[in-house]
Design a protein around this nucleic acid. Structure first.
Lengths: 271, 271
DNA sequence: CGGAAAATTGATGTAATTCAAGTCGAGTGG
DNA sequence: CCACTCGACTTGAATTACATCAATTTTCCG
């Protein structure tokens, strides 16, 4: 993609305001990045899970391979996304993860995440938010795969990618690189690769989307969005800041405190 | 269903060991249950989101309604499940939630959840785990909807329900109540209701599953599991206890500690 | 330049949808 | 208790959106 790393900290702040300590903790991430090439596997299904990663640069995806040789792609990861938080409550990976481009990754062990629970509530909320945000993407994909025809699946997915990329690269032009083969798109959308090809032809003929190799161009984004009925409501609106506004809620109770339990009655039946 | 409430605390302990204080915090939940009847809505898409719920008794589901009148069901909730954690990072609900039976619910505001981040690491990990576990269910459903034929979709879903119910009611017999109409199953699996009917006939004729009204019976669970290639790997194996074993990890290092990050290089190359 | 992978295109097959008519069962009210 | 309704389910026939197979063409990359 474009050569430069994404500023992870700035990106994260879109989810949740951070304080100095939080930034310091995150900076740790930046210090020992790991790089992989297109096609490399980060892990495979059933391997032991003990960490998650933050994608600092490049594209990646997770997938489940089926017995009959087909596969279903579960997530497409862009810079700033978190990979492998799903298995926090499992012993083993539920899906394989592979790289679509050269990538740069920061690793965070689950144990370190748990230690973060104790040291930064904001980072706890941040990763909580990212997990929730990913779930929102998944539910939208489920709707897409379960209830739309091929044209709408593809158009909707391209809309989603366009909007997600725009959040990472606000200057994104109307034609951009999407390093996904038609076979990959088929595996994402639950279609066959030849039908993806035909569907691209259809989108081209109706002037909605043009594709040349990996470059997508959307002559009129508004038109595409209307034609698809796309709504970006599931692409994150940060909320954590508000929730943190009344810091007293827990700050008065102190870090080590179980005393918050005493406040329980006050806070339990909220609002 | 069966009349009695599920013991939420005991259920939660399957995810993560709890200490006395944690139990006290959770007990608060039990104090003001809310009851709704079959068909009632808990909320609708686009309503403001400020809390999640723990389902103490009964069945519920979430769904997205489409423009063309169809809909996609996103989750089916059983006792012990958590509803609405997904919108933690959003202003508004992403899906509607309705009841399938009479239910009992405990409410936890997002603000209270955040205060929990400060007062109990174990509960933080618990809710983190539940969110992750739900994501695992979603990914499996995505595979189901995207890559299987009608027979396998239905058989797989019934397997999943059987296994999930068995975790809640270990004594569950081989025939049990599943309060889902064929239309509902169609909305879950991305099929039409008439094809669900035909598919049940097929399962009946091959002796895998019998359905009478809302009662499902599985004469030979092992056979069904094999016929479907069902694997329960995505239905939770708790991991938190291990992660918490060496409590020193964060207790010693305290707030500013980097030391956990130092493990990175050691563990960076997974397995 | 040459071989391989990705994409296109056409012909054919099929799993699932849609439409429509009819059955069954539960609940209601006379 | 029976007749009525209403929703859930069943079954058949016609249609369709997609998959599969196969033959080319195009693009990539060493």
């Amino acid at each position: 993609m474009d050569g430069s790393d994404v500023d992870i900290i700035r990106h994260f702040e879109e989810y949740c305001g951070l304080e100095e300590d939080d930034r310091a903790l995150l900076n740790e991430l930046e210090r020992h990045p790991m790089t992989l090439s297109a096609g490399d596997l980060l892990w495979e299904e059933h391997q032991t899970a003990d960490a998650f990663y933050v994608l600092r640069k490049g594209w990646a995806y997770s997938y489940r391979a089926m017995n009959d040789g087909t596969r279903q792609v579960l997530d497409v990861y862009l810079p700033g996304d978190v990979i492998g938080l799903r298995e926090f409550s499992f012993y083993k990976r539920l899906s394989s993860v592979a790289m679509l481009t050269e990538v740069s990754l920061g690793r965070i062990s689950y144990r370190y995440l748990i230690s973060l629970f104790g040291s930064s509530h904001r980072l706890t909320a941040l990763f909580f938010s990212m997990l929730a945000g990913q779930q929102a993407l998944l539910t939208e994909r489920l709707v897409n795969v379960g209830r739309r025809n091929a044209r709408d699946k593809l158009a909707h997915f391209i809309c989603e990618m366009y909007m997600r990329l725009k959040r990472v690269y606000p200057e994104l032009p109307q034609h951009f690189c999407m390093p996904l083969s038609q076979q990959m798109l088929a595996d994402i959308l639950g279609l066959s690769s030849v039908h993806v090809s035909r569907t691209f032809s259809e989108l081209r003929e109706t002037g909605l989307v043009y594709r040349d190799r990996n470059r997508i161009s959307i002559p009129d984004p508004e038109l595409l969005i209307r034609a698809t009925g796309f709504s970006d409501h599931y692409l994150h609106e940060r909320v954590s800041d508000q929730l943190f506004e009344s810091e007293t809620l827990w700050q008065e109770t102190g870090l080590s405190s179980r005393s918050a339990a005493g406040d329980r009655s006050m806070a339990a039946d909220p609002d």
